[in-house]
Design a protein around this nucleic acid. Structure first.
Lengths: 366, 366
DNA sequence: TCTGTTTATGGTAGCGCTACCATTAGCGTG
DNA sequence: CACGCTAATGGTAGCGCTACCATAAACAGA
């Protein structure tokens, strides 16, 4: 009696024996049923069910040098934005054989490279990574990954393979133009920690104001200021935005520019904090002060007054990324290397300086 | 020339040859360096570096019937609560060899069972699952999983293996008692879709009110009502809570019980919606109406007025779950099967009916 | 009828690693 | 000096699956 190391679970050989066919036929029947005649397929299905056979993924991966794991790298788990992206990704994966493995880079390029290397050990079926600002080493790993790579949530002319996202520059510019059109003249920019996408938004903001002759660098709360804030003990480099942070940043910005009459917040959470700060100070929004956010999370519309924001299509980006990945894995051609999913400027009460009546809530809830 | 199927990357045999040792010695040096003499270890490390050797995880898993994957099942990715738990889990994993694979059950037992079966194909090193309300089949799979299983975010006397969480019943009761002590008498319960943990909170609420002789079922917005809401087209079964939902649920509850003078919301997002609804109606919080939430997300403290909530230790739960898992994998004994991490009732302005001055913001930010 | 092509199935030989046992050398014990 | 023990290393034989090739049968074209 030879010594077996198995854990006792049925293997493909057991199924083959029971069905009275060769092991390789079982393998085929499981991977692509159309390759096997109806009669054998039925026998095999029966045997699988009777034995409770479950394929061993490690063996499959080893033999085929290709796994069912899709690696996903996001810079944050706590921000709603990426939670929405992930939801889209999971929804896109659905009931397929593919599995998701998420890595959290925390906006750290070294950590991203480390996670990428770890992921590659799994011989992933595909990779989905956030943004375009990889390190040189990271970029190289992606290019040599030997699997489809989808970049998301940004745009570039030079994707590794395919990119699905939108222009943060254009989005930032569009919202700033809305604020200008609404009649605000001293429009501030409020931001916590800046990443490359925030910077895109900021550059759009600057461009819009310069074109209107309204640009003033004193109205910007730059990333640099966060160092000072960190020293005061409130936040560290990896801290995500909070409403408390929004309140304090707005207070600080007002000190530097007391005549500021509106603020474009780098994200909705900061915008909510800005609203709370106005409420606490008795500053009337939107009459005295306009507030705009970015991403259009749920609470923006529900707030009182409702808050303007830039709606971004996070779920769609995640979902479409997976669909594109699956297409490529199925061997379908895909020559659309850059996909712009766009954005929408949601104009709500918080930037309605002229005082048009706010939309009734129920109607707005669509 | 035999036909190789390799993808060209160096294997353990290449390392062994270059270092002038046996393959098995390389394997040992990589898994547990203390098993190999200093001299050989050094040679092997050099060879690994020179060749850029990266272990093939599938081969390791196949040979040892044990992978480096830790499966995590959460019911939602969009809710902040589980994003925080996940952050704790990722932080606990740190730089170890372990990998996280997250499954999103969407509060669906069938989906949970399916994901569990999928995860088990990977022969996971460990499992972390949310809650105690698995299906019978799911429970059986967990018990036969042949790896450490940690349940989180709830408590039970009968965990599969180990559970880390807190009592939702006690937390719900404590907050309700706070509302009673604050002077409210007609305290409502506001909830979206109910899961087993929500039900625990509700039972605590009921118990507190019954003990005080204040219980009235008309003050509860039960899960059943959601069916009617769904018919109106606003939300479906899987919809997570939004502030808009909070606004409408509060409006509905007020219709059913016009004398309601406070509301305990099943989560913070609903509480925020309730605040917005009060602001829109001109109802004074906390003087006329008290609002309490659950989980104590960031925005609760920053809101104006600041909102009372039950602080739950989500990050810690995730983090401790991983630490416990790692302990068990390292063979350390762990006989504490039930770990209660507790909760804190955060008493803030929104339930301060007597009008004591609110705490200054900066101090409260600790 | 012969040849070439397609379809359905099977056999063999890996994939890269580790469990298990064997071997060797060094050392202490009685 | 035979014996047992430990520490360090190696060899062999899998783990469960699939790539690759072989085979056999059915069919088409000339």
């Amino acid at each position: 009696m030879s010594k077996r190391r198995t854990d006792g679970r049925p293997t493909i050989a057991d199924v083959a024996q029971r069905a009275g066919v060769g092991a390789i036929t079982v393998s085929r029947a499981l991977r692509d049923p159309s390759l096997v005649s109806d009669m054998l397929r039925e026998k095999i299905d029966t045997a699988v069910r009777e034995l409770g056979y479950v394929p061993n993924l490690a063996a499959r991966t080893l033999a085929s040098t290709r796994s069912d794991v899709v690696g996903v790298l996001v810079p944050s788990l706590t921000q709603h934005i990426f939670a929405d992206v992930l939801r889209g990704i999971y929804d896109g994966i659905g009931q397929t054989r593919l599995h998701i493995q998420v890595g959290n880079t925390r906006y750290d390029l070294d950590e991203e490279d480390r996670l990428l290397a770890e992921l590659l050990r799994h011989k992933p079926a595909g990779l989905i990574v956030s943004g375009v600002d990889q390190s040189a080493a990271g970029r190289r790993m992606l290019e040599k990954a030997n699997c489809p790579v989808i970049q998301i949530m940004d745009l570039t002319d030079n994707p590794v393979n395919k990119i699905i996202g939108f222009s943060h520059h254009d989005a930032g510019k569009a919202m700033t133009q809305h604020l200008i059109e609404a009649g605000y003249r001293r429009i501030g920019f409020l931001s916590g920690w800046m990443n490359s996408r925030s910077k895109g938004r900021l550059s759009g903001y600057v461009e819009a104001l310069e074109e209107a002759g309204l640009y003033d660098p004193r109205l910007i709360n730059p990333a640099g200021d966060l160092e000072a804030l960190a020293l005061r003990g409130s936040w560290d480099r990896h801290q995500y935005s909070t409403p408390s942070m929004g309140r304090q940043l707005l207070a600080d910005l007002w000190k530097a520019a007391p005549d500021m009459d509106a603020v474009f917040c780098n994200n909705d959470v900061l915008a909510l904090g800005a609203l709370f700060e106005c409420q606490a100070r008795g500053v009337a929004v939107p009459r005295q002060f306009g507030i705009a956010g970015f991403n259009d999370e749920d609470f923006m519309e529900a707030a009182s007054p409702s808050l303007s924001s830039v709606r971004t299509h996070r779920w769609k980006v995640g979902h479409d990324a997976v669909i594109a990945l699956r297409r490529q894995l199925d061997g379908e051609p895909d020559d659309e290397r850059v996909v712009d999913v766009g954005f929408d400027v949601m104009k709500r009460a918080s930037t309605d300086r002229m005082g048009k009546p706010a939309q009734p809530r129920d109607a707005a809830a669509e």
